[in-house]
Design a binder for these strands. Structure first.
Lengths: 187, 187
DNA sequence: CTATTCTTTTAACATAAGATAAAAAATCAG
DNA sequence: CTGATTTTTTATCTTATGTTAAAAGAATAG
């Protein structure tokens, strides 16, 4: 839990009471590689913080496995298109390296917003930053060749290429695995 | 201003005091077609609500004009990657049809968050929905051909194709204008 | 350690989309 | 209304990426 509160502090420092209230609605989950933390079709009611390990959000399009995003230690992961709409998600969260995560009960968290405006503010800021990252990612996808997107990933998030199977990276970049391999071959 | 408050009500109904406080920090701006509402390089300190007209966010990549998004009546437009980070934006907001917009002073708005948690909640919800739309757009770009993306736009937002020059639509879809024209030719 | 399975690379061919140029059509200013 | 400008389409050629298949390499379970 300490890592989580440190992470929170970067966005909006909380009072002890608020921290305790959050601690009440959290649980620690350990989960093995290749397991789904949340399955496809389930409505997202949990926000996760990764203490240790790697995870990805993925879905199937025409039977093909597509990675939407990766998450590493000290970051939040949630299927927001379900969390914020209350609808079931067509996406799943899968663990790529044995993980320990903090599971935050979202419904109880949203109730805390009423008593602790500072908690609402904290999560507002967390998701504002995530929103900005997503907007920037659209820019990266709009007019870059596959090779440029690969090089950008190599520069901005080399940990992805070091810790994640390339077959998952390919769909994340919006290309086939064969294309990715070809790009890597020509340095 | 009435349209704005109606729009707000869909997200989070406000008290009369909160509405009045927001009205205080708003101004009405009318602006002509082809004008920039906000130029490139300026830090975003205003959130706009469109009463009438059409606008787009655009930027230049390697000298080429690229449209990030379109906005129509009864919606919010802001360059969030600047608004939420305080950094200058490499993007501009351009008016595509003579417009009337409500300009909300963002710094004053953020101050209102301290006295009116209901206002903070309102904008939290507004941007959560915008965040979800952006996540869904990534999905649309990840593994669809140009033709599929065109057809999706035709179904989901035909007003874009009806009211916006095609040269702007092409870059929005992540393709060249020539490609877009070719796709349209084959029905 | 070995066999099996999973992952990555390589090869050959097909195709969608880019680049450039020019024609046609539409829009706009005077 | 007319000429000038902007936007859209069409044509030709090139190239990047997809598709399929198979080989090579790495990881894993027993």
């Amino acid at each position: 839990m300490q890592k989580l509160f440190q992470y929170f502090r970067k966005f909006n420092p909380l009072s002890k009471e608020a921290e305790n209230a959050i601690a009440e609605i959290c649980s620690i989950v350990t989960i093995k590689r290749n397991k789904d933390l949340q399955p496809i079709g389930h409505t997202c009611k949990t926000i996760y913080f990764i203490n240790k390990g790697v995870a990805r959000i993925y879905y199937f399009k025409d039977g093909i496995d597509i990675t939407e995003s990766f998450s590493f230690e000290n970051s939040i992961i949630a299927r927001v298109e379900s969390l914020f709409t209350g609808k079931p998600s067509r996406k799943a969260i899968q663990i790529l390296e044995d993980a320990e995560v903090v599971a935050i009960n979202a419904n109880q968290l949203f109730k805390l917003y009423d008593t602790f405006p500072e908690i609402e503010r904290l999560f507002r800021k967390i998701f504002e930053v995530a929103y900005v990252e997503t907007v920037n990612r659209i820019e990266g996808m709009q007019f870059h060749s596959a090779e440029e997107r690969y090089n950008a990933l190599l520069n901005e998030a080399p940990n992805v290429l070091m810790r994640v199977p390339l077959k998952y990276v390919a769909s994340y970049l919006g290309i086939t695995q064969v294309s990715l391999s070809r790009i890597r071959a020509q340095h």
